[in-house]
Design a protein around this nucleic acid. Structure first.
Lengths: 343, 343
DNA sequence: TTGAAAGCGCTAACAC
DNA sequence: GTGTTAGCGCTTTCAA
């Protein structure tokens, strides 16, 4: 009923070890023999048992993706898709584990619970990539991991990112070139280091253009629709002068801001230009479509998978303090849509 | 370095088998011995190796969730959360596998690729729960599976659902009681059987109230923001008479419809009542918040996990043609928010 | 370039 | 109630 490596070996007239060699693309197999084995594998529809494999070798063909995203923004969506896609391409499987940093001991518990899975590595997107208890436990267990856009501790582990600072700088330039001088900013989660770098890029671009940042127009946000809504709602409720443009640190908040503006009888971009960051799916389909900064999130996570699969990151690699942790920077791109225009 | 069952056994002064018994909550272990073993496990921070376990037993402690949701609606979000949560509670892990039904052979390929994982079962949410090639392959492989809201083939396998028909009926009644007589409907994906049952519930409720369904006001949709937007956009562009309420077969489309209405200078609910279905997270936070029908999606999937973990659904259970496939129906609830009012 | 033997860490089956 | 024995299906030695 269930086909094992022995069945394949018998039918192909070779030893199990030879089949194993073919399976793992090892060298030292006569091309002709390899062909035969491959054919038999096909014929018998043989699928190697991952458990037997994992038990006797150092690899599990399993990658972990740790997430915390209670509001399931478009960002988290892309993260998953990228990981899923590349895992599929490489013959790996993805194990997703949510972790709530606010729950005492949650991180440790999750890491322990996957310890038995012998994951080949784990991927840490924001905000978990800067969650210290989690990092500590992962390192303690000797697991390989790659962080996505941590924005700090750059030499601590492999990471993939975009230049958040430069991207925010470019977005701000875009607003300024459109003719805006009074620009507000809705910040992201304070503990998310990338959020700080976006704000830094904004501030620098303003200063370089000889513009001052009005502190009253810098609002707190948590990267969610509601906090974007709340920030804009609060801003637009005031008596004083208002900015002509609002730079939200991500798309979900920009969407919320558009909604809040509407509540105040204001339309984007006619009455207020609103831009986001990330290029989440919803930014494309909302009304108006949101001008944003595209981050190749899927590609970033796919690269993270690549790093984990690469032999030198595997858990049996051993630390060679020599090499610095690899740091991959992917390109970003301004996506002009209809939520921003001349004031 | 790595703690095995033998280490625990030695330290506790028992045999490995006894440790195994404790691990698996088997009977026939003296309470006192059990205590000792548990303490040693704790002390040594022992984590059973899933591979060894899976290799020698029939269980993998792995559940598969197959999804197809290119637009990552709120529905898919809840599906995942429910599965993740219950798996965590039961000590299982979730392996997520996307399948695109439009790609020739994709289903077969995915099922083959997880064959080596010996999943304890797979969960099939819409629209995959009615995708024949997938079902066929899963059955061929002898895998246990539970479908979510398939709406057809009710005796084919275990399933979890709500009474879509009754729910849509109730929502329509709500609109009618609000005073609406001219009600439009935006349909869901045609191949999604549950979508048809929602429409049926709508039609019956209308008929029962002596109201006619204007076929011009029944628009096609695909359960996405864009198709909801497009449907409403098209409807509102017409010269003729317009409905006073629009029942969208899910929340994402309702959100799109709200957006389209706005494009035409119409506000919900003042100018047009718009309701959805599902109670997706976004329905709560949009402006206006969407009146919708709550489906306990998370609980439904959690129940599906329970079914799969239950011994009698495990892959070593064997088919006993006697028992009918279990069918679990969970309660729904009307959630009145601000997108619907009297005409 | 190939194969034989010895486990990997756990649990099933069977003793005691 | 508890322990012993024998694998699960693969990969790793190491020998040929």
């Amino acid at each position: 009923m269930i086909v094992t490596i022995k069945d394949v070996a018998e039918r192909a007239g070779v030893s199990p070890k030879t089949v194993s060699r073919v399976l793992n693309n090892e060298t030292h197999v006569r091309p002709q023999l390899r062909e035969t084995v491959l054919r038999v594998i096909e014929e018998l529809n043989y699928k190697p048992n991952m458990f037997a494999r994992g038990l006797s070798s150092a690899r599990s063909y399993l990658i972990g993706l740790f997430i915390y995203d209670p509001y399931w923004s478009g960002y988290a969506t892309d993260i998953q898709l990228g990981a899923l896609r590349r895992c599929r391409e490489l013959g790996y499987h993805l194990v997703i584990e949510p972790i709530d940093p606010h729950i005492e001991g949650a991180a440790e518990q999750v890491v322990d619970s996957v310890a038995g899975l012998r994951l080949d590595g784990v991927i840490l997107p924001p905000p978990l990539c800067t969650f210290e208890p989690l990092l500590a436990r992962i390192e303690e267990m000797g697991m390989a991991y790659v962080r996505i856009s941590p924005g700090q501790d750059m030499d601590r582990s492999a990471l993939v990112e975009i230049d958040e600072y430069a991207a925010a700088h470019e977005m701000t330039r875009h607003l300024i070139e459109l003719g805006h001088r009074d620009i507000g900013f809705v910040e992201g989660i304070p503990t998310h280091a990338a959020a700080a770098r976006r704000y830094a890029g904004f501030k620098t671009a303003m200063a370089e253009a000889g513009l001052t940042v009005n502190p009253d127009w810098v609002l707190p946000g948590m990267f969610t629709f509601q906090t974007g809504f709340a920030a804009a709602d609060e801003l637009l409720s005031r008596k004083g002068p208002l900015p002509t443009a609002l730079f939200c640190a991500n798309d979900d908040m920009a969407l919320g801001a558009v909604s809040a503006a509407r509540k105040h009888g204001l339309e984007a971009p006619a009455d207020l230009s609103i831009v986001g960051f990330d290029d989440a799916p919803a930014a494309r389909f909302s009304w108006p479509p949101i001008t944003t900064m595209r981050q190749p999130v899927s590609d970033m996570v796919a690269s993270a998978v690549d790093m984990l699969v690469d032999p030198k990151y595997r858990r049996d690699a051993g630390k060679d303090g020599g090499k610095p942790a690899p740091r991959l920077q992917l390109p970003f791109a301004l996506v002009q849509r209809q939520s921003a225009a001349t004031p």
